[in-house]
């Protein structure tokens, strides 16, 4: 091996597939945030005269079975679950990162207890936990945030713990410690650069999981309540009218798919 072979250029921050993912997410975000500014309207306003009517100037995607603008309901729905998902991912990420490094650095009983808790949560289907939390916490959005955070932190915890343990056992960290560097330096220089790329992947996957969970529970009528515009709820409401108003059903389906595909592509390969 010559030296030149080894000195490959540093990895670009985003691969081609990840860039496609970012573009998809940006498109969905633009639809949701800018759309209602260009065509103004109310996601809740009913007009039974226009039930299941096709697109017009006030409603670019037509009307649902209650005569509400699908475009404005979709734009609102595309804000609701991503915001809940992001809040949950941030909470879970912060908790997982803190507990994971703590567990790896301290070891002993703290480590054993946290691993035991994480293993038990891992054995439970996420949707089950979310449903149980929803039944306890007043307010559906708050319940989703709490339930999703409870489900998602485990993955962050496991990743952080594994990577930190491996890094702490490496000769590089041993050398730094022998030279006299402290815990803050070890975290900043050795641990964080190992964890950071994984955190992005886990966060993108976590957001996708969260959005899927909110939509899935909406679809089976145990998530967000009508008349809140929510992706899964919109789909199940419009499913019976598929033959009369295919566009009204396709719009949330395609938007959800684009958003989730974007997040999956952004997450990239799980290999580390």
């Amino acid at each position: 091996m010559s030296v030149l072979d080894l000195s490959a250029a540093p990895q670009p921050p985003l691969s081609a597939t990840r860039r496609v993912g970012v573009v998809l997410i940006a498109l969905v975000a633009a639809l949701s945030l800018l759309g209602p500014l260009i065509v103004q309207g109310d996601p809740y306003a009913q007009s039974l005269m226009k039930a299941l009517a096709g697109p017009d100037a006030a409603a670019p995607l037509g009307y649902d079975h209650l005569g509400r603008s699908v475009f404005h309901r979709l734009a609102y729905a595309l804000r609701l679950s991503p915001v809940i998902a992001l809040a949950a991912v941030m909470t879970a990420g912060a908790a997982g990162l803190a507990l994971g490094t703590l567990s790896a650095a301290k070891g002993g009983w703290i480590d054993r207890c946290l691993v035991m808790l994480a293993d038990a949560l891992l054995a439970l289907p996420g949707l089950l936990l979310i449903l149980m939390v929803l039944a306890m916490v007043p307010g559906t959005a708050l319940g989703f945030w709490a339930g999703l955070s409870l489900v998602l932190w485990v993955e962050f915890f496991r990743l952080t713990r594994a990577a930190t343990r491996e890094t702490l056992a490496s000769p590089a960290v041993q050398a730094s410690r022998l030279l006299g560097f402290g815990a803050a330096y070890v975290f900043r220089v050795h641990i964080w650069p190992e964890i950071a790329p994984m955190m992005l992947t886990a966060a993108a996957f976590g957001t996708a999981t969260a959005i899927m969970a909110i939509a899935a529970l909406g679809f089976v009528h145990v998530g967000m309540r009508a008349p809140t515009p929510e992706l899964g709820l919109m789909m199940v409401e419009l499913l019976p009218y598929w033959r009369e108003a295919p566009l009204a059903l396709l719009a949330p389906v395609l938007a959800t798919f684009a958003l989730l595909l974007g997040l999956t592509l952004l997450a990239g390969s799980r290999k580390t």
């Binding site: 939509a215 899935a216 089976v220 389906v253 959800t256 997040l263």
Partner: peptide
């Protein structure tokens, strides 16, 4: 397929 939730 992974990006499509099962209900979808």
């Amino acid at each position: 397929i992974k990006a499509v939730p099962q209900f979808l």
